[in-house]
């Protein structure tokens, strides 16, 4: 069974953190082959385990900056599916890739599962595990179509180690009419924060209204724990932190081993984006905050006292 992995990468050609995870997962299902879309240079090293990598050049004189827009990427993936006879495509579960998957479903008959946290082949069919209803239910979903497209959440598998890039197979696609209609007026890729990627981090510290805009104690604890920093809708609306840090149903969904909410009330929208976390720690001075209903370890107290003390004690305990 050929399993294609869309190798998400920066505009400059650096693979995203999810790429080696997806490759490792693909290797557990069948013969893994990579798909690299666009003109960005292929790195010398790619995640190990790929039998080959399909580089798809986009004949893009019609849509000069548009080689990453969803219709173009979906057409590139579809071309490689046709060329290889692949029956499974794994994509990182991002909003951009959901648009890609939706087109593969609507135009190429694929069955699509979003936000999978596991993927297996059982009796020849693809079965994905996912949590639904704000992390309160777990389901197993079978794909009953010849082509399975599974969007896999960050952190679903241990990353494959880098290795020398395998054999490269060249493809070229011309954007369809619809693909050529999207005009990219402006695109600004954001620089990394220097911290782990929020969606895939093993530890996430989230600040809410209770921080009153001071994320200092969270930053220090995050330095100590190697954590990513997230925020509630209130905190991003107040402009205390960038929009992309918003954790919640319509923001980033996180399912880290450890979630620490500081000054987070735990509104249902926020819970929808973090309730699948392994261990939930909450610090809030309001004993009635709903987050305490789901916290494994809740502290009613002042985050400006509790967090610095925890950071200092962690430093002491771990020398």
């Amino acid at each position: 069974m050929t399993v294609l992995v869309l190798l998400d990468h920066t505009d400059a050609g650096e693979p995203r953190a999810t790429a080696p995870e997806l490759v490792a997962l693909a290797c557990s299902l069948g013969e893994a082959e990579g798909v690299w879309v666009g003109a960005a240079p292929l790195p010398a090293q790619l995640p190990s385990g790929l039998a080959r990598v399909h580089r798809v050049a986009v004949a893009n004189d019609w849509a000069p900056e548009g080689e990453h827009v969803a219709p173009v990427v979906s057409e590139a993936v579809a071309a490689v599916v046709d060329a290889t006879g692949a029956s499974v495509v794994l994509l990182a579960s991002t909003f951009e890739n959901k648009d890609v998957a939706a087109r593969l479903g609507a135009l190429h008959g694929a069955g699509v599962v979003t936000d999978a946290d596991s993927v297996a082949v059982e009796h020849g069919t693809v079965v994905a595990g996912k949590t639904v209803l704000a992390g309160t239910w777990t389901t197993r979903v079978e794909v009953v179509a010849p082509l399975a497209v599974v969007l896999v959440k960050a952190g679903a598998a241990d990353a494959a180690e880098p290795a020398a890039a395998p054999e490269v197979v060249e493809h070229a696609v011309a954007p369809s009419y619809v693909g050529g209609l999207v005009e990219v007026v402006e695109r600004t890729e954001r620089a990394g924060t220097g911290r782990p990627d929020l969606a895939s981090a093993q530890t996430v510290i989230v600040g809410g209204r209770g921080t009153e805009g001071d994320f200092g104690p969270l930053e220090e604890l995050a330095d100590e724990l190697g954590a990513a920093i997230g925020a509630t809708r209130v905190a991003t609306d107040e402009g205390w932190i960038a929009r992309e840090a918003q954790v919640g149903q319509t923001g980033v969904t996180v399912s880290p081993r450890l979630y620490i909410g500081a000054g987070v009330s735990g509104a249902v929208h926020h819970r929808g984006g973090m309730q699948a976390a392994g261990t939930i720690v909450a610090v809030n001075n309001d004993p009635d905050a709903p987050i305490f209903e789901i916290a494994d370890y809740g502290i009613v107290g002042d985050l400006f006292e509790v967090l610095p003390q925890a950071t200092a004690e962690l430093r002491r305990l771990r020398g």
């Binding site: 479903g105 008959g109 694929a110 069955g111 699509v112 599962v113 079965v127 949590t131 639904v132 992390g135 309160t136 239910w137 777990t138 389901t139 197993r140 979903v141 079978e142 794909v143 009953v144 179509a145 699948a276 939930i280 720690v281 610090v283 004993p287 305490f292 789901i294 916290a295 494994d296 370890y297 809740g298 502290i299 009613v300 107290g301 002042d302 006292e305 509790v306 967090l307 610095p308 003390q309 925890a310 950071t311 200092a312 004690e313 962690l314 305990l317």
Partner: peptide
């Protein structure tokens, strides 16, 4: 094109702790 094979409510979280800070909750958390 997808079929749900199984659905279960997530098990309730066990051994949950709720403390009120009396001065050492940060150290206890660590």
């Amino acid at each position: 094109r997808t079929r749900i094979l199984a659905a279960e409510p997530r098990p309730a979280r066990k051994d949950r702790v709720l403390v009120t800070d009396t001065g050492d909750a940060g150290a206890q958390l660590a």
